[in-house]
């Protein structure tokens, strides 16, 4: 199950993976695919996986956080500056998170990040004051978003995903955040005029299999599934990034204007983001993990600068 619609890149890759796995395991392992959220939102799918009604599903951070709250550390605001950094930290934490997911009864088939989220708005947003003045949407019940807006001292409007488009239409909200591809798929781009050129946060994702179901497979099939899964998901992440770039081009072509952020304002955003990071300590993850991620990033940046 996945929220991704039929015909999307995501689904194409999943169908390809299904075919390859069928071939590699002589049909012993196959997927029945339910796209477009027909099985409910991610919290519902987690519930269904727990009772073994669904065996495997693709999640974004919201669903993954429902199982393992500390996974959300990969989605903290203003944490990463580039996809290189995302990939590096994710690969450092891969085995640890995979083991923790298994403790909770889920086997991770591969990370499938959706990409960086940006802010799209009806009025240009250049400073934190601009942000405070516009009515910005917040994904209802998302603790990361809540902490971020609180730290920024921005009063956001909590709404379910399904209500966002109509609310943009009626000006109930004037600004939203999302990676570029979903912005186009959900048609939000038809209701906004500006895009803030500031990667706000990474939107993570992963495909999980229920451990109970996974352990029913032979060791050989398990390995096949792990190998193929990890490989295809890596390709998927690259394709998703390409699609995001294409979506940005499409939006620019449709007349959406890119807004550059004042460097001083960026610093204010970064300070507020750091505040949000520490506000979430004890809620989603512990201080040690946050420090480790900071450390990893610091080393990575130093190495990069040295080159």
């Amino acid at each position: 199950a996945t929220l991704a619609p039929e015909g999307s890149t995501y689904l194409k890759v999943m169908r390809q993976l299904d075919e390859e796995i069928r071939a590699a395991t002589d049909g012993r392992v196959k997927f029945k695919i339910y796209p477009g959220g027909v099985q409910g939102d991610e919290k519902d799918v987690v519930r269904k996986m727990r009772i073994n009604q669904i065996h495997s599903a693709g999640f974004t951070g919201v669903g993954l956080g429902e199982i393992l709250p500390e996974e959300r550390i990969l989605e903290l605001p203003m944490l990463f500056n580039s996809y290189e950094e995302v990939d590096f930290v994710t690969s450092q934490l891969y085995d640890e998170f995979a083991a923790k997911f298994e403790e909770k009864g889920f086997v991770i088939l591969g990370w499938a990040d959706v990409g960086f989220a940006y802010v799209y708005s009806k009025n240009p947003i250049r400073t934190i004051e601009d942000l405070r003045k516009s009515k910005i949407w917040m994904w209802e019940g998302d603790p990361v978003a809540e902490a971020t807006f609180k730290a920024l001292n921005v009063a956001a409007t909590p709404l379910a995903l399904t209500d966002v488009l109509t609310s943009l239409q009626t000006n109930l909200v004037e600004a939203v955040y999302s990676p570029a591809l979903p912005t186009v798929t959900l048609q939000w781009h038809t209701k906004v005029d500006y895009m803030m050129n500031l990667p706000l946060a990474n939107v993570s994702g992963a495909v999980l299999i229920s451990k109970k179901r996974f352990e029913e497979l032979s060791a050989e099939d398990q390995q096949t599934l792990r190998d193929l899964g990890r490989q295809r998901m890596k390709e998927l992440v690259l394709k998703a990034r390409e699609d995001n770039d294409k979506s940005v081009d499409l939006m620019l072509k449709n007349g959406i204007k890119m807004v550059e952020i004042d460097p001083a304002a960026v610093e204010i955003f970064k300070t507020a983001a750091r505040q949000a990071h520490s506000d979430l300590v004890g809620k989603l993850y512990d201080r040690a993990l946050l420090d480790r991620v900071y450390g990893t990033l610091k080393t990575f940046r130093e190495k990069k600068a040295a080159k």
């Binding site: 917040m138 019940g141 009063a155 909590p158």
Partner: peptide, 13 residues
């Protein structure tokens, strides 16, 4: 409250 952007975040849930 929403008119002043001050509603309870948990209200609708």
């Amino acid at each position: 409250l929403r008119l002043w952007q001050a509603q309870f975040l948990w209200g609708d849930i």
